[in-house]
Simulated assay, not measured.
Amino acid sequence: MQLRVFTEPQQGATYDDLLAVARRAEETGFDAFFRSDHYLAMGGDGLPGPTDAWVTLAGLARETSTIRLGTLMTAGTFRLPGPLAISVAQVDQMSGGRVELGLGSGWLEAEHSAYGIPFPALGERFDRYAEQLAVVTGLWSTPVGETFSFAGQHYTVTDSPALPKPVQAGGIPVLVGGRGAQRTPALAARYASEFNTPFTSAADAAGLFDRVRTACSDVGRDPATMTLSSALVLCVGASDAELTRRAAAIGRDLDELVANGVAGSPAQAVDTLGRFAEAGATRVYLQVLDLADLDHLDLVAAEVAPQLG
């Protein structure tokens, strides 16, 4: 199983904070560094303020060398699909082909109000999201020298040169995720290389994975070509005191963390990850909420990752 570091910078982080986490994650062997795409803190003051996801990843692309970089998830409401395709392809070039795009419909109304971003009703957001996936992947997959056009209800692209192109072999992986029963699995089957279940139990993840496999089969896609992953909060300690301190630092109840996250002792973390592996996940995003605690990453890399096989 691959372990990836997943951060929530809107809760309060500078670029330098994120760089330190990304570098430590790279040094200790984590597969990827991902970040959320939000402009408003969810509890707390969020100081010193939000950082833009793709500006951050562009910087990290030049200041790291091997770790993969991406979003979980970029909000479709924040960006037009054509310029988003350009930005992500550029960061892919800047990183030497290490970028992945998690793309979602956008959901936090308050951050849209706070920064003047239109926030349509859910049905329209999802319709726009489906068209965004079509445009972004269509631009990237258009052969050099040809043009791309798309006529949707919300977005129209006419004779685009569809540049720049991603540099990584096979193109930039696209992640789709969520708990939707029909439209989300169908979009994943059509456009995504990875499907992610956010903060669910292993049993619920297994059910969602089954829906995506069925959706793949329905469109004639081999379900084995879909990477299945989960995202879970991380809180692991080598001792009871260390564990209690880490839970307190992120303002979470320890019993709740053990029940719902990758939490407890290293052995408990291995057991939890094993349950998700049995459910079908081959990759887990560990939500790291205390970005100053780099020793946390060291512990997981040394005591948890080697036991996952």
Rank of each mutant, 00 (worst) to 15 (best):
S95C: 07
Y15K: 00
R4L: 14
A114D: 10
G70R: 00
L80K: 12
R23D: 04
F78G: 01
D52L: 15
R125H: 08
T14Q: 09
E26M: 04
Q90T: 15
A22N: 05
L101N: 08
F78T: 00
D37W: 05
T7L: 09
Q93L: 13
R4I: 11
G96I: 12
A110Y: 09
P50C: 07
L40R: 14
F33T: 04
Y129I: 03
L57P: 00
G97R: 08
V91L: 07
D17S: 10
P9C: 04
E111M: 05
W107F: 11
Q93W: 10
H112E: 05
D37M: 05
R68P: 00
Y15D: 04
L133T: 10
A130S: 15
M94V: 11
T28G: 00
L103S: 12
R23Y: 01
G43M: 08
G106N: 04
F34C: 14
Q10S: 06
G46W: 07
Y115E: 06
G97I: 07
H38R: 13
R98K: 09
W107G: 06
R125T: 06
T28S: 14
T14M: 06
G76E: 03
Q90G: 12
P48H: 02
W54M: 05
P120Y: 03
V55D: 11
D45P: 03
L57S: 03
G102I: 00
G96M: 03
E124C: 01
F34Y: 14
A20E: 10
W107C: 00
L72C: 13
G116L: 07
T77E: 02
M73S: 11
D127E: 15
R23V: 10
I117Q: 07
T77M: 09
T64Y: 01
H38Y: 04
E63F: 10
L139H: 09
A89M: 05
E8T: 12
R79M: 09
Y15W: 12
L139M: 13
F30C: 08
S36W: 14
Y39H: 13
T77P: 00
R68N: 04
D52Y: 13
G46M: 09
I86K: 15
G59W: 02
Q10A: 12
D17C: 08
Y115M: 13
Y115R: 11
H38Q: 14
A134R: 11
P81D: 04
T28H: 12
V135T: 08
E27P: 01
R125N: 10
G82S: 15
T66E: 13
V88P: 00
A41D: 11
P143W: 07
Q93E: 14
V91P: 03
E26H: 04
T74Q: 12
M73L: 15
G43Q: 09
E27G: 10
A53K: 03
D45R: 13
A20H: 02
M73T: 14
T74L: 10
L18Q: 14
M42I: 14
F6T: 01
L47K: 15
V144F: 02
S36Y: 11
E27Q: 15
V136G: 05
G44Q: 05
I117G: 08
L84I: 02
A89S: 13
A89Y: 01
G82T: 15
A41C: 12
M94Q: 10
Q132N: 01
